[in-house]
Computed example of a mutant assay.
Amino acid sequence: MYKIAVMGDVASVLGFKALGLDVYPVAGPEEGHETLHRLARENYAIIYMTEQLAAKLTTDIARYKDALTPAIILIPGKEGPLGIGMANIKTAVERAVGADIL
């Protein structure tokens, strides 16, 4: 059975635990790198990650870009949105549709 995880700083991800998601607070990019690859090996189908952490793990995230699992979805952290998640959605829509419809 596939699972869902949330990665990021403690303040941004702790609330997701109340929803029943597996929460992985990470302190920095080194810990984020190790956690991301471990979750990918452990049958996590969806990994929500704060944009602040994702900005530091671009090469790691790119490794899973075309893979079926895990789907890495960026969410705003406690500092607010950086626009990375929306830019990724826009790029994915352009690839799927062939034009910018957003």
Rank of each mutant, 00 (worst) to 15 (best):
H37K: 12
E79D: 15
G28T: 08
T59C: 01
I73T: 08
M86H: 08
T69C: 05
K17P: 00
G8L: 09
P76M: 06
G8E: 03
L39M: 06
R95V: 08
G28L: 06
V93K: 10
L82H: 09
E94V: 14
G85Q: 10
T69K: 14
V26F: 04
M86G: 00
L19K: 12
A54G: 08
A54V: 05
T58D: 01
G85K: 11
E79G: 10
G83E: 05
E42V: 02
M7W: 05
L57I: 09
R95N: 14
A45I: 01
A71V: 13
G77P: 09
I72G: 02
L14D: 04
G28A: 08
E34L: 12
S12M: 06
L57V: 04
K65H: 11
A96P: 02
V10Q: 14
I73Y: 03
G85W: 07
D66L: 13
H33V: 07
G20S: 09
I61C: 03
D22S: 13
Y48F: 15
Y24Q: 07
E51S: 04
A67W: 10
A71E: 08
A92F: 07
V10T: 10
G8Q: 07
P76Y: 02
L53D: 00
K78E: 13
D66G: 10
S12N: 05
I47E: 02
I84R: 09
G20D: 07
Y44Q: 05
N88Y: 10
T69I: 12
G77F: 01
T35R: 13
F16A: 03
V93S: 09
F16E: 01
P76E: 03
L21Q: 02
A55K: 09
Y64A: 01
D9H: 11
L14T: 15
E42R: 14
T50R: 00
T35L: 01
I84Y: 12
E51K: 04
T35I: 06
G80S: 05
L68E: 11
V26Y: 01
A18F: 13
L68Y: 09
I84Q: 12
